[in-house]
């Protein structure tokens, strides 16, 4: 019995590979480097709703039926988030990051993977309350057009407003949250003035290029859906898109530290995963000519140097302690 299941799992992995390859070749959407476990859940969910017995049956449908593919694409890509999710992140933006942006003439912010827009409106409200909205441009992008359409409309279920209001208050909101939307039947329609400086556009983090000279990139809870290789590619994109000293904001459980681009960033608000792109010159390995005259360094030499440095450090510490004992006031 166990053997059957392990074979079934192996077969499913193969079908999954074929499905993702087919979608990429036919429609250009590339899910091949997404984290498989979540993708698997979403695909299984669609299979059970649409009544498919195997992934293979669904491959056929996805290739031949564009309408079905659109539905399936929404399954794979839309993440529903909250307004002011992780309220403490927004407190940090307001208290620690925005004061540093105040000096700028114009503020360019890229919200990458904005999905249905909840976070974009949260950001707009915050910028408005801190008097920065009028000199800001927010680029809100997603590769899913139906999600982007929803984001542009800015109409949310009224039942969620209670939770959003509470989040807003915990996030240090200074106005009445009800001033930011109009309630109509079972909908909350976000205020037009919040949309004025938002540019919604289609952009795919996996296959599209950089956005130039951003002062801040916000991309929260998107990278957790990607595998390590794809995460690295996206960090490259962000690093190229940010201006020197620009801020990168990730989700609470995401980090730049495990990527190849870790040394390009300093921690600004550690717990909230807000980083600042630094201006340290990088050693570009491709520029070192293999014929150039670099003496190979022996391990013995390195070990000897390390010993000298460590001895010097110990002596320095002794000296500091001595100075401290003579002059304890300093």
């Amino acid at each position: 019995m166990n053997k059957d299941y392990s074979e079934e799992h192996e077969n499913e992995k193969l079908e999954m590979y074929l499905l993702l390859e087919a979608i990429y070749r036919k429609y250009g959407y590339d899910f091949r480097n997404y984290s498989r476990a979540s993708l698997n859940r979403r695909i299984k969910h669609r299979m059970s709703i649409s009544g498919f017995g195997t992934i293979s049956e669904m491959i056929h449908k996805a290739i031949y039926d564009r309408t079905f593919f659109e539905t399936f694409l929404a399954d794979l890509s839309i993440t529903v988030t909250d307004m002011f999710r992780d309220p403490t992140f927004f407190i940090s933006l307001r208290k620690e990051i925005f004061p540093m942006l105040k000096e700028l003439h114009h503020i360019k912010i890229w919200v990458a993977g904005c999905s249905t827009g909840e976070e974009v409106y949260s950001l707009s409200i915050l910028l408005k309350e801190e008097g920065l909205y009028d000199k800001s441009t927010i680029y809100a992008t997603d590769f899913n057009d139906s999600a982007l359409k929803k984001a542009k409309e800015g109409i949310y279920n009224i039942n969620l407003i209670k939770k959003y209001t509470s989040n807003y208050q915990i996030a240090g909101g200074i106005e009445s949250f009800s001033d930011y939307f109009i309630a109509k039947y079972d909908s909350a329609i976000m205020d037009q003035s919040l949309k004025k400086n938002i540019i919604f556009s289609s952009h795919n983090l996996v296959t599209d290029g950089m956005f130039g000279e951003m002062d801040m990139v916000i991309c929260r809870n998107v990278l957790i859906y990607f595998n390590r290789d794809l995460q690295n590619n996206v960090f490259k994109l962000f690093t190229e898109s940010l201006c020197e000293g620009g801020f990168l904001c990730l989700g609470t459980k995401e980090t730049v530290r495990l990527s190849k681009y870790s040394h390009d960033y300093d921690d600004i608000v550690k717990g909230e995963k807000i980083y600042k792109k630094n201006s340290k010159p990088r050693l570009d390995i491709t520029h070192i000519n293999s014929n150039s005259n670099i003496e190979p360094v022996s391990t013995g030499f390195i070990n000897k140097s390390a010993t000298i440095i460590s001895e010097a450090k110990t002596k320095l510490e002794e000296l500091q302690r001595l100075i401290q004992s003579i002059n304890p006031g300093n």
Binding site: S35, R36, A37, S38, V80, T81, I224, Y225, G251
Partner: peptide, 18 residues
């Protein structure tokens, strides 16, 4: 506030799915 999943290569993945 995150789902915790395990990948075939015995690493964790997180998600904010519904």
């Amino acid at each position: 506030n995150y789902h915790l999943l395990i990948e075939d290569d015995k690493t964790f993945s997180l998600s904010i799915d519904e």
